[in-house]
Amino acid sequence: MTRYALFETAIGFAGIAWNDAGLVACHLPEREKDTARRSFLRRFPDAVEAPPPASLSPTIEGVQALMRGEKADLTDAPLDLSRTPQFHARVYEIARAIPPGETLTYGQIAEKLGDKLLARDVGQALGKNPWPIVVPCHRVTAAGGKPGGFSARGGVDTKLKLLAMEGAAVVTPKAVAQGDLFA
Rank of each mutant, 00 (worst) to 15 (best):
T2G: 02
L6Y: 03
F7G: 09
E8N: 08
E8Y: 10
I11T: 13
G12Q: 10
G22A: 10
A25M: 11
C26I: 02
L28E: 08
P29N: 10
K33I: 04
D34W: 14
A36Y: 00
A36P: 08
S39V: 00
F40Q: 02
D46K: 10
V48F: 12
E49I: 14
E49D: 14
A50W: 10
P51D: 15
P51R: 13
P53Q: 10
I60E: 08
I60W: 03
R68Q: 11
R68M: 08
G69I: 05
K71C: 12
L81H: 05
S82L: 03
R83P: 00
Q86C: 04
F87S: 04
E93K: 14
I109M: 09
L113Y: 11
D115I: 11
L118P: 04
Q124A: 13
G127V: 05
K128L: 14
N129I: 07
W131A: 13
I133R: 01
P136D: 09
R139G: 03
R139M: 10
A143V: 14
A143N: 15
G144E: 14
G145H: 01
K146V: 08
G148V: 03
F150A: 05
D157T: 06
T158R: 14
K159I: 02
K161I: 07
L163Q: 01
A164S: 11
V171R: 07
V171F: 08
K174E: 11
A175N: 07
A175T: 10
V176P: 01
V176H: 03
G179P: 00
F182S: 08
